[in-house]
Design a protein around this nucleic acid. Sequence first.
RNA 1: GCCGCGGUAGCUCAUUGGUAGAGCAUUUCUCUGAAAAAGAAAGGGUAGGUGGUUCGAUCCCACUCCGCGGCA
Length: 305
Amino acid sequence: MIKSKTNNRKLITIVGPTASGKSELAVKLAKKFNGEVISADSRQVYKKIDIGTGKITKKEMKGIPHHLLDVAPPKNRFTVVQYRKLTLKAINKTFKKHKVPILCGGTGFYIQAVIDGIVIPEIRPDWELRKKLEKKSVKELYRTLKKLDSKRVKTIEKKNPRRLIRAIEIAKKIGRVPDLKKEPLPYPVLIIGVKKNKKELENLIKKRFFKWLKQGFLKEVLKLRNPPADKGLSWQRIEEFGIHYRTAAQYLQNKITEKEMLEKSMIELRNYAKRQMTWFKRDKRIHWVKSQKKAEKLAKEFLAN
RNA sequence: GCCGCGGUAGCUCAUUGGUAGAGCAUUUCUCUGAAAAAGAAAGGGUAGGUGGUUCGAUCCCACUCCGCGGCA
């Protein structure tokens, strides 16, 4: 390999379940190794959706630049493809400053799209078509896709309407769903996973939620609904911003009690953390650590070589 | 004390005279422009207890225990 400046490019990635302390670790590593943080969170990309997504505060950033936060208005739906584009830009910008980009977040799909370079067909979501297709049964959808693309049908989940609809959407526009293309990053990547046992994580999630409530999380939700000037968001849209927003919206509409809100949040967040771990577990590149010290050591070795 | 209602999976509840199901929870898994999303699979109950009727009871009957509501 030719030794040149580009070979000094290295990306550190921090993954882990919700509430595991990724953001804090990212800031710590950024401080220590002259880095900038790039968030990998599908909800924190939205403006005004702050407390309930655990978005890092200015103070917590400790002067470290953070990217991919507040990059979209909450009214519009953000997607992986946009995420990948913006993130690659942010990474390159960071390299230009001779700093280490630290990709940090819990949205496995977004991270995979960046580091493995999942190239998704350039077919934009067609919400009108989706709306129409949503009325159909999965069997009908499956049959429709089968007619359009005999290959994709073989690997797709037969009972998953969302996947079927997207496949149909692509096939309708360009004939069939192209094979998955991957464009991995041309520089080394270290992936650190923050490990927590079940009980620890459960406590962290609970504590964090109570903290958010004290910080005015419910007020934030109400403000989304009824902002001072502009038209507010629908409850339906608010519920899309994640588990806490969903349960809070239901509570604020008097559909569930406060107690139910707390219980539901805990259960769903626990399940979410589990799903995240299911995703991360299969990636054998991840170095799982229990302490920040261990993470620092890994980063140091990675950057030295 | 009396009357009524109920006691079936961890929870909420269906169901049937031929040994039971759902939703949620639990465990595991999937992942091609919604991913805190959308899906899949699995484990789990001898139907409060005892006795009786019956070829056979979780379901019918009696007694008993427990919970809830009402009356006194």
